[in-house]
Amino acid sequence: MKKSGFVALIGRPNVGKSTLLNQVLGQKVAIMSDKPQTTRNRIQGVFTEDRGQIVFIDTPGIHKPKHKLGDFMTKVAQTTLREVDAVLFLVDAKEGRGRGDDFIMDKLKNVDTPVFLVINKIDEIHPDELLPIIDEYRKEFDFTEVIPISALQGNNVTTLVDQVFSYLEEGPQYYPDDQITDHPERFLIAEMIREKVLHLTHEEVPHSIAVDIEQIKERDNGKVYVGAVVVVERSSQKGIIIGKQGKMLKEIGQRAREDIEAVLGSNVFLELWVRVEKDWRNKAKYLNEFGYRDDEY
């Protein structure tokens, strides 16, 4: 009989949860950015091998909400804790413990399942700094295991997976062997476009963007046509994303198309537009339209 279970990745924004998920799976299912709060919804990554199956749930970073979208993200993360077989609490070795970490540990005191402290980005600190970091967190919470890793470089990630399996019980296989995520293609494509916008616009356009996939259609020539709209909150942001003579939007499209083709396994014709919807992050109509449905949690 094989083992199986659901495991939550939780932590402050930008601690490397999506990087870890992609590293474990060996393929990108969660978008990565150096900006906090990149993940907005629960992204399930499925890891299957001879021992069984782990369904990792990458949650949004827990933070103090500033708008309805932020409320949704925090609610998603906290709801996930009640539905899993184990929790991986990721912290940033370089940043040090903060109030956000204390807030999460307080929430974790109500969790009955094993909680691992996963200290990420150990490649960015001196080895002598690691033990004091472990001691600092252990004083606040009785963790089941403490595992230092570098999600980006892959250091100790195999050990982490081994430890997770050791705490899981025998159970069914929830997904086929070759499935690595439960999200539909439409969701993944939107996330890939959003990732490129975040990468290329840097600090000029904050997290006030969404991507709405209007059409995915296979054409007679074998190419897949994807029509998508990048939604922003202000006209000035629209100008930044389009860029001078449309150069920025073209670059976003070219980079996103490469990722989309890798996922679909087909040649892709990607057409992008930019639309302004003022203050969309505080409007239930747009939150529902763009996939942030509060009634699901």
Rank of each mutant, 00 (worst) to 15 (best):
D92G: 09
N110M: 07
E136M: 13
P114H: 05
V91G: 04
D112R: 10
N110T: 07
D135M: 14
D135R: 13
T79S: 15
D142S: 13
R99Y: 06
F141N: 00
V76K: 11
G70M: 13
R97C: 04
V115Y: 01
G100D: 12
K107T: 12
A86P: 02
R97F: 13
D142V: 13
T80C: 15
R99I: 13
G100Y: 12
T74C: 13
I104V: 12
R97V: 10
A86Q: 03
L108T: 00
P132D: 03
E129Y: 03
D106P: 05
H126Y: 13
L131G: 02
V111N: 07
I125L: 05
V84R: 05
D85K: 10
I122R: 02
F141Q: 01
G96W: 14
V115S: 00
L81C: 11
Q78M: 14
K94Y: 06
N120L: 05
D135T: 09
A77T: 09
F143W: 05
F89H: 03
R99P: 04
R99C: 04
E140A: 07
D71I: 11
E95V: 08
D85L: 03
K68G: 12
R82W: 06
H126D: 07
M105T: 02
R99N: 04
A93D: 09
G98P: 06
D102N: 11
I122F: 07
L130V: 01
V111G: 10
